[in-house]
Write a protein that binds this DNA or RNA. Structure first.
Lengths: 316, 316
DNA sequence: GATTTTCCATAAATTTAAATTTTTCAAATA
DNA sequence: TATTTGAAAAATTTAAATTTATGGAAAATC
């Protein structure tokens, strides 16, 4: 290795001698013997081809070159200390960044609460939430742009094997009606009743839309027969549409808690129909796991996980 | 020794890997084997309790902690490079300060030429010339305030032993007369002629004055009988006085070269009288000798030294 | 889809460097 | 002159870094 003309240890010794004015005292300060100090300074002087100390008298005095070197020495050692501090902060979660991925629903209704909890405990870690499609989120986790993510859709096959996928929670999609809708009075609807409704649906690109369609189809419904009033690309827009009496929709229950409480929207029960999807936690096992990511997974996620999730099991 | 969490070598390796994106390439760049690089990074990661590189894929990618460390790393290594440059400059005389001491005569007529020559070769070394009495110059050399000095007088006994005193040159003090003076026509004066002259002398504090008086006395003259027209404390003032016809004087030949050439002053020869003093180079052997001082002593001083000087001998 | 190549990790052995102990030397103090 | 203090020198021990050799996993090539 093309050698550097000095080592950090030598600089530390130099600084100590300059401060103490004596090789012996510097040695005591650094818990080494005096010859060790002498040797290192000699090496330093040989390497740089300068004389650093005037050892004539009782005190070791810096030469001009020594003073020059000491200036740099102190700057370098300060930078080293700073670097150590920064790393320590990162280790103790007093810094750093956590990047979380999520789908529209989770990102809008679940993540804010989780992130809030996390930030309460670790206010110095900055958290980024990236809301993307399942597909894109999957790839971002794969190449390390996202530390961890919660998705509701199906990953492409190749990613499925690459990533660690842990069942996390069950997201129930409820049939919601305008509160003034005639069918809102019935305790329980039949599947056939769905054909009478006008639906406000998510746009067909959406993962949630695909999941809902698939689940309805699996339960024996003919989704072609369902009347579509309009397609919107935002859950909030759909909620507003439903509240305005424009139609019905299947929405994640987590997204309508407030509206249910306020009575501005009606949640209907349909006999023999459960529209549920599994939310999954995905991480990249072949990548470095940041301290912040670790903590989030171990301490925050389990609090919102369903009982069946492996994350929950760990805690018990 | 209370250990530092990293070494400069480790930082250099870190930087190389980050730049090359590969352990192997970094190893090649640094002319070491790949395991050496791997082990050093592992040590670094262990020490700091962080993961620095994501070794998963084809390329070694920095983690967040790695990026943080790299920032400091580059700053630290830059400072190191700068320090090296500064030291090199000092070594190659592209910086630093040389402090030279001299007596009035040498400082006025000899040093400017020497310093000029030195500065021509080493324009980046700043040179200070301090003109003081022999006594004060001696002490300044002793305690390191002056790197080297040329003196014409006698050092106090204790300094004589402390310092290195090297015969340097012979300073001839010539009897000078106004060019219109009647005695200017004589080829050679006799000692008795001196009693007929009016002298313009240096003030009695001056080392040169003391030396001249002593030399005259040693050669058998009664200095009490010499008529003193006036006493001045500047050689230039005396030269002007002589040129104006106010009197004669003993002046260092180096100080009257220009006037002799212009014919405005006359240099007289006195039979059986040589007024010469030894100029001596003094240095402090127990102190650090700066590179600039070394070069001045070896390359510049000999060019103006008398043939008998040890400085001259070295060159032959 | 099997093979080759690339890249990093690991283990053992060698080499190199650095620290310590003991001793010596020089200068300053008493 | 004797004594103390601080630095250098030499020899031994200890530690650390490098190399050589080997193995395994992921890409790239055929």
């Amino acid at each position: 290795m093309p050698e550097l003309p000095f080592t950090l240890d030598q600089l530390r010794i130099l600084k100590a001698i300059a401060a103490q004015g004596s090789f012996k005292k510097a040695a005591d300060l650094l818990y080494v013997t005096q010859p060790a100090v002498s040797l290192q300074i000699q090496n330093l002087e040989k390497q740089l081809e300068i004389t650093i100390f005037d050892r004539g008298g009782r005190k070791a005095l810096l030469t001009e070159a020594g003073r020059l070197l000491l200036e740099y020495c102190e700057r370098i050692l300060n930078q080293c200390d700073e670097a150590c501090k920064a790393i320590e902060d990162l280790n103790s979660l007093k810094g750093g960044t956590l990047i979380i991925g999520a789908s529209q629903t989770t990102g809008t209704y679940l993540m804010p609460r989780m992130i809030g909890l996390f930030r309460q405990k670790y206010p110095d870690v900055s958290v980024q939430l990236q809301v993307h499609s399942t597909r894109r989120t999957g790839w971002s986790v794969a190449n390390g742009q996202i530390d961890l993510a919660i998705i509701g859709g199906q990953l492409p096959g190749d990613l499925e094997n690459l990533l660690q996928v842990i069942p996390y929670a069950t997201d129930e999609l409820a049939l919601v009606l305008p509160s003034k809708h005639p069918l809102s009075n019935k305790k329980e609807l039949l599947k056939e009743d769905l054909y009478k409704l006008n639906f406000v649906k998510l746009d067909s690109q959406s993962t949630t839309r695909k999941v809902v369609d698939k689940l309805l189809q699996d339960s024996g419904l003919d989704i072609q027969r369902l009347k579509i009033e309009m397609e919107l690309n935002s859950l909030e827009a759909i909620k507003n549409a439903v509240q305005s009496g424009l139609g019905a929709s299947f929405l994640p229950v987590v997204s309508i808690e407030r509206e249910l409480a306020a009575g501005t929207i009606h949640k209907a029960f349909v006999a023999d129909l459960e529209v549920k999807r599994e939310l999954k936690l995905i991480t990249n096992p072949s990548r470095y796991t940041s301290r912040a990511s670790e903590v989030f997974k171990k301490n925050i996620l389990p609090k919102f996980a369903s009982l069946e999730s492996p994350l929950k099991q760990i805690l018990i």
